[in-house]
Design a protein around this nucleic acid. Structure first.
Lengths: 156, 156
DNA sequence: TTTTATCCTATAGATTTAATAGGGTAAACA
DNA sequence: TGTTTACCCTATTAAATCTATAGGATAAAA
């Protein structure tokens, strides 16, 4: 981790980069989707090939691809010549959907979540909560990014 | 958690609302700062009073306020009549600074972080990484929200 | 000197993530 | 029909992290 000497942030040099971080599950899932989208033909690609190419633990990737299949992003074929393949066009795969399936809620607090709303135990009134007010803006702003991106948009 | 029957999201009903979630530390810290900013006079406020008013574990809050003092947001006074108080105007307390101190990096992956940059082990080239491309947008978008908000802006 | 309230370190419990283990099932092919 | 291939599925472990607590030290006020 690069820190600039003398900055306030150096007080935090024991910070571990974890919180609010994208899970490996989502990261690997996105990489796998990208890899599949970049295939010339639409033949199934084996887990092993994806794992090798993207430096992912094969068994871990297996469970991620399983999730993506069950949630309607991927199709699969067993036996020789089998593997996974996209069942929609990359331009039809919305980042909002992928992120919600792999990562979970997009909002950073349940009380501003659209699809996973929960009231806070400790907070008597959302309308007078500063955290609520700030996180509402963050949610809208992140949501706009995910809404503006499909799998086709993030392929390079 | 409210889920809509029949929706794709119901497949995920075992989701626990954790990932990408704001830590309690940050949430409590923001609430404490808000509470202090809302004080009529600038007299020190005791930890116990803040904890009681905001439904926060007193000992946990204690450690959070300590962090906020060490990082230059709060002043403190010991002994009778002591407590914590803001040492800057709410309009001078930037959300970027508060979030970085309490929550850590704003970026969701180290490879797009401004202050906590780290290269990914598994990724040979950032410019051709779809995750990088997406998370760069998310970072910019979240950063804009935090840059546009001071403590004064989120007080209701 | 007593009371008040912050300061500080260490640590425990609960939860979550990331990864692994191990075998089951279905398809292709000879 | 039997063998190989490759996905399917559940359970579990190891490590890391968050949240909270314990217990006392220090400083200020009365």
């Amino acid at each position: 981790m690069r820190l600039y000497p003398g900055s306030l942030l150096c007080l935090l040099s024991d910070f571990v980069y974890i919180r609010s971080m994208l899970s490996k599950k989502t990261k690997y899932g996105l990489k796998a989707l990208t890899f599949l989208a970049n295939q010339k033909n639409k033949e199934p690609v084996q887990i092993a090939e994806i794992a090798r190419h993207e430096n992912i633990s094969q068994k871990f990737l297996e469970s991620i691809l399983l999730t993506l299949r069950r949630t309607g992003f991927l199709g699969s074929k067993k036996g020789k010549g089998g593997g996974y393949y996209l069942i929609k066009e990359p331009s039809e795969i919305l980042m909002t959907a992928v992120i919600r399936v792999l990562e979970g809620p997009i909002a950073m607090v349940p009380c501003v979540s659209l699809n996973f709303y929960e009231k806070c135990d400790d907070c008597p009134d959302e309308d007078s909560c500063s955290v609520h007010k700030l996180m509402l803006q963050v949610r809208d702003s992140v949501l706009e990014v995910y809404r503006n991106n499909t799998l086709a948009d993030i392929i390079v």
